[in-house]
């Protein structure tokens, strides 16, 4: 159930390119999506699809040579209620947003914390930076945050160093650090990929609970569809630096309208239930043949066309636009209506 509400973050036509010795790499090539207040948006795609670069662009953490935000706008309404275009902000203004209005946690908890400072110091740093508290108060907030994320004996742990903690605990510390200033938006870039499955479940539970408690939005980046099913309200699927499908999570799972999404869903081993792909026998586990496109040399037409079962001549001619298939469900495929028809026939 999608919470209807105001738009917190709107990315419009974002293009982030990298100037390398071998040419221009178009990592993000015209991406548009939005996140509402209080909702969790999952961004799904393989490595190389541009999902991480998108999130780093939102945080303006792309190294500016060789990277560059070439076009587009990122409209964000901060805690002060004012809408700003992140692309146009100065570095000083951006620093006020990072860790404060928008926080980010990363994939590798083992290496994402500074080994020579205590975890309390690192959490307190954000608090002192954005909330103007002094060291003592900030450490108190740090201990509170540790308790908030479920770390036992927080007053003691606050003085410990990262190497004294396990991976799961370090990720909790990262979450505590990210949430310490009550951000409106949390960007989580594959936060559980590097963790054990059981720990993964705990971290996801934690994130859901925190989201309920403080009502923040989450931009969840992952390639794991199981996590998407658990966490997301809406989904954006990315391929070749573009959005290829967007919509409500249940819709996407039940009725994908882009061949890539179909392929992804069919690659999950699930007993019994499979999405019906027109022309395919039911119940088969499929891998998507071929490789991700070379970002230096994207096809002129649809980026997925070389690997697509349903490709036709027209697919090669131009990049398909995002079609609105109803109910906020978008798909970048010229044959989406045929898919819709087939799926309706099957369920009928």
């Amino acid at each position: 159930m999608t919470p209807q509400g105001e738009v917190l973050l709107a990315v419009n036509g974002l293009k982030t390119y990298f100037n390398t010795d071998d040419g221009v790499v178009k990592s993000v090539d015209g991406v548009t999506f939005h996140i509402n207040k209080g909702e969790t948006l999952a961004v799904v795609g393989e490595s190389g699809s541009g999902k991480s670069v998108t999130s780093l662009s939102i945080m303006r953490l792309i190294p500016m040579p060789p990277g560059q935000i070439v076009d587009g706008e990122i409209l964000f309404t901060g805690k002060d209620g004012v809408q700003k275009n992140i692309v146009k902000l100065s570095e000083a203004e951006m620093r006020k947003i990072r860790g404060n209005d928008i926080s980010m946690i990363f994939q590798e908890p083992m290496t994402s914390l500074n080994p020579v400072y205590t975890v309390g110091d690192q959490i307190a740093e954000a608090v002192m930076l954005h909330q103007g508290k002094n060291k003592k108060e900030a450490m108190g907030v740090a201990a509170d945050m540790l308790r908030f994320v479920g770390i036992p004996a927080p007053e003691k742990r606050v003085n410990e160093y990262p190497h004294q903690m396990s991976g799961g605990m370090r990720q909790r510390v990262m979450i505590a650090m990210a949430l310490s200033c009550n951000p409106a938006l949390l960007i989580a870039d594959e936060p559980t990929t590097a963790l054990d499955v059981t720990i993964q479940a705990q971290i996801l539970d934690l994130m859901r609970k925190l989201q309920r408690d403080i009502g923040m939005s989450i931009l969840f980046i992952t390639h794991n569809l199981g996590v998407v099913a658990e966490m997301a309200d809406r989904v954006v699927v990315m391929y070749g630096g573009r959005v290829v499908e967007e919509g409500d999570v249940v819709e996407i799972f039940k009725a994908p309208r882009h061949p890539y999404t179909m392929g992804l869903l069919n690659s999950i081993p699930r007993p019994g239930e499979h999405v019906h792909v027109p022309g395919q026998p039911k119940g088969r586990l499929e891998a998507i043949p071929g490789n991700v496109p070379n970002p230096l040399n994207l096809p002129r037409g649809c980026a997925f066309e070389p690997r697509c079962k349903f490709a036709v001549e027209a697919c090669r001619e131009a990049v398909p636009p995002l079609f609105d298939t109803g109910n906020g469900h978008m798909a970048r495929c010229i044959r989406w209506q045929e898919f819709e028809q087939v799926q309706q026939e099957v369920t009928a």
């Binding site: 945080m59 953490l61 570095e91 620093r95 006020k96 947003i97 990072r98 860790g99 404060n100 926080s103 980010m104 990363f106 590798e108 290496t111 994402s112 914390l113 500074n114 080994p115 740093e125 954000a126 930076l129 954005h130 990262m174 650090m177």
Partner: peptide, 15 residues
């Protein structure tokens, strides 16, 4: 180039 330096930047720490 380390991850924890990226974390510090993501927190809004000045360069």
């Amino acid at each position: 180039g380390q991850d924890y330096v990226r974390t510090a930047r993501a927190k809004g720490v000045a360069e």
